[in-house]
Nucleic acid binder design. Structure first.
Length: 269
DNA sequence: CAGGCAGCCTGTCGGC
DNA sequence: TGCCGACAGGCTGCCT
């Protein structure tokens, strides 16, 4: 579910409540997530939080003894709440903080993860990730160089974490619309100009969504419990048969793999 | 090796 | 009203 803007929104929301506070302990109500919650997280005690960072769609809590790696999966969200608030059905894990608050993890589908590592370097979930989309390393040149021999459709390829991280199913469709590129185009067919335009629109769409607090379709909540507001600005995602906001042509929908894709057949070539 | 897709889970929605 | 299948923001791992 959450793509980069939702994860970054969560990071910004929780950071001021965690950094400078101490984790007293964790309450794990259901540790059966994508992988079992690490033993070290069950055993946490009196660990100050040094920083809250993000790499791709992973949130990283830096503690003196190591790092908590959090992934929100498809339906996860994190909220800062008063410690006494009773948990509900899918509230699987709390970090109980020294400042009277808790960081509560909610995830109906349990595709998320809470892992522990002493060092980030070389950890299996982080080791093979491509560049951050908002970094200078991710550019039209990078896209073009990587695309030359790629015989995959551009849309599913944008979601390949080895190419660039953080672009999921919503923002792949939205970025291609903004760049005027048809999602079925083979990656190898893109010109260097198109790659530059696409890299630029990916950055712009992600930045705008972060400004709006991400996209809430059903589950996602910002850490204060509010939804993200970028859903109102979606151009094509989830808008099958509705008029294109630019030209009025009904929005098309299809599949790449098992994932829905949306596009405007007039604006995207 | 690249590409495609099943599977992990629960909830919701639409059609019959 | 109820049942059943399809689908949902991600990612790994197995198969061709």
């Amino acid at each position: 579910m959450p793509e980069l803007p939702e994860v970054e929104t969560s990071r910004r929301g929780i950071e001021p409540h965690l950094v400078g506070a101490t984790i007293l302990h964790a309450v794990v109500r259901n540790g059966r997530l994508r992988w079992p919650v690490s033993d070290e997280i069950h055993a946490l005690s009196d660990q100050p939080v040094l920083s809250v960072r993000r790499r791709a769609k992973y949130l990283l809590l830096e503690l003196p003894a190591g790092w908590i790696i959090i992934h929100l999966g498809m339906s996860g969200s994190l909220r800062i709440l008063p410690a006494e608030l009773p948990p509900q059905k899918h509230d699987h894990l709390d970090l109980v903080m020294s400042n009277g608050k808790i960081l509560r993890y909610t995830d109906p589908r349990r595709f998320g993860a809470w892992l522990w590592t002493k060092a980030l370097e070389g950890h299996s979930v982080l080791a093979h990730l491509g560049p951050e989309p908002l970094s200078d390393e991710f550019s039209g040149t990078w896209l073009y160089e990587k695309s030359k021999r790629k015989k995959t459709a551009i849309k599913p390829w944008l979601m390949d974490n080895k190419l660039v991280v953080g672009v999921g199913n919503i923002y792949a469709s939205e970025s291609l619309f903004a760049a005027g590129i048809h999602p079925d185009r083979l990656a190898s067919s893109l010109s260097v100009e198109e790659c530059c335009r696409l890299a630029q629109t990916i950055k712009a769409v992600l930045l705008r969504s972060i400004e709006q607090g991400g996209t809430t379709l059903r589950d996602f909540l910002q850490s204060d419990g509010k939804p993200g507001y970028f859903a109102q600005e979606l151009q094509v995602y989830g808008r099958e048969k509705e008029p294109c906001r630019v030209c009025g042509t009904p929005v098309s929908a299809g599949k790449h793999g098992q994932r829905s894709t949306y596009w405007c057949r007039h604006c995207q070539r």
